[in-house]
């Protein structure tokens, strides 16, 4: 019964997303273009480097890593900050707060439909395309299970961070600035722009102590490692789980605290 009300929101999200078929086409073209640029750029970079493996990553590894990072980004980006910010500005948030469901959950589940559509329409095709282009360089084995587990936790961490940042909009009434700061920090420090293996030393260590690398670097390195040691898997997934809980608690508490301060114009 409880799950049913959430899945209704998922279904509504799927139907809504399928209304915009043309934008999917444009998005696919955009991603394709990005893949082409990334492919040629890194090919040129590795050709100039003279060696096949740099920092423990070969050209194929880097390509898979970056392409799937983009696919994961498209999959996970829920525009939560925009949604919360716009709801605050328009006053619609008052109506959402009255709903018999926690706002945090309501927002998540009303977006969960796009997870389903994005998975089948962008992530899976990209994954297959990369597997073909790299002639099966993605190891297919037990690592896939770790990858899925890791992605689930990454989604949760990403949502908590988004929700936390969205809550800040209650105070600042600025959306664009807050959102771009979040996006830039997350994309850079999570290894989505450049794999973390390439980071210089002090930065690399710092990044490993931050929650962001759990979003992209953790699932992708689990995926690329065909024969992972149990310790690596456990420590990666464990770190993710810890961050998952920490970020969830912080974002919940911050939201609860902020709700008392809320002032909404009109509505």
């Amino acid at each position: 019964m409880k799950l049913k009300k959430y899945l209704t929101l998922t279904r509504a999200g799927i139907i809504e997303a399928l209304q915009f078929r043309l934008s999917f086409l444009v998005m696919v073209i955009g991603n394709l273009l990005y893949l082409i640029v990334v492919y040629f750029l890194w090919k040129a970079i590795y050709a100039s480097a003279g060696t096949d493996v740099v920092n423990g990553m070969s050209f194929t590894d880097t390509l898979i890593y970056l392409v799937l990072a983009t696919a994961l980004f498209n999959f996970m980006e829920m525009y939560t900050v925009w949604e919360i910010g716009r709801n605050i500005q328009s006053g619609k948030i008052v109506l959402d707060l009255l709903k018999p469901m926690e706002y945090r959950k309501y927002l998540f589940w009303s977006y969960s439909g796009s997870f389903v559509t994005q998975f089948f329409l962008t992530f899976l095709p990209t994954f297959i395309a990369v597997a073909i282009v790299t002639h099966g360089a993605i190891p297919l084995g037990v690592n896939l299970i770790y990858f899925v587990l890791s992605v689930v936790m990454a989604v949760s961490i990403n949502y908590s961070i988004d929700f936390l940042v969205g809550t800040i909009c209650l105070y600042t009434e600025s959306i664009w600035g807050i959102n771009i700061m979040k996006q830039v920090i997350v994309l850079l420090l999570s290894g989505a722009t450049i794999p973390i293996a390439f980071f210089p030393e002090p930065l690399k260590t710092i990044v490993h102590y931050l929650p962001f690398q759990s979003i992209y670097n953790a699932p992708l390195s689990l995926l690329l490692d065909g024969n992972p040691a149990t310790e690596t898997v456990l420590s990666t997934l464990g770190t993710q789980l810890i961050w998952c809980i920490i970020m969830m608690v912080i974002s919940k508490l911050f939201w609860k605290f902020s709700l008392r301060q809320i002032t909404v114009n009109g509505g």
């Binding site: 100039s48 480097a49 920092n55 600025s174 664009w176 600035g177 807050i178 450049i194 980071f199």
Partner: peptide, 27 residues
């Protein structure tokens, strides 16, 4: 905040550029 966000974007762009060229001297 928007101005700071813009500066962030540029700094991050520069950092990724710098990281890239630390590993690869020329393209």
């Amino acid at each position: 905040i928007s101005t700071i966000g813009m500066i962030f974007t540029n700094i991050a762009g520069f950092i990724s550029f710098w990281i890239l060229f630390r590993n690869f001297p020329s393209i």
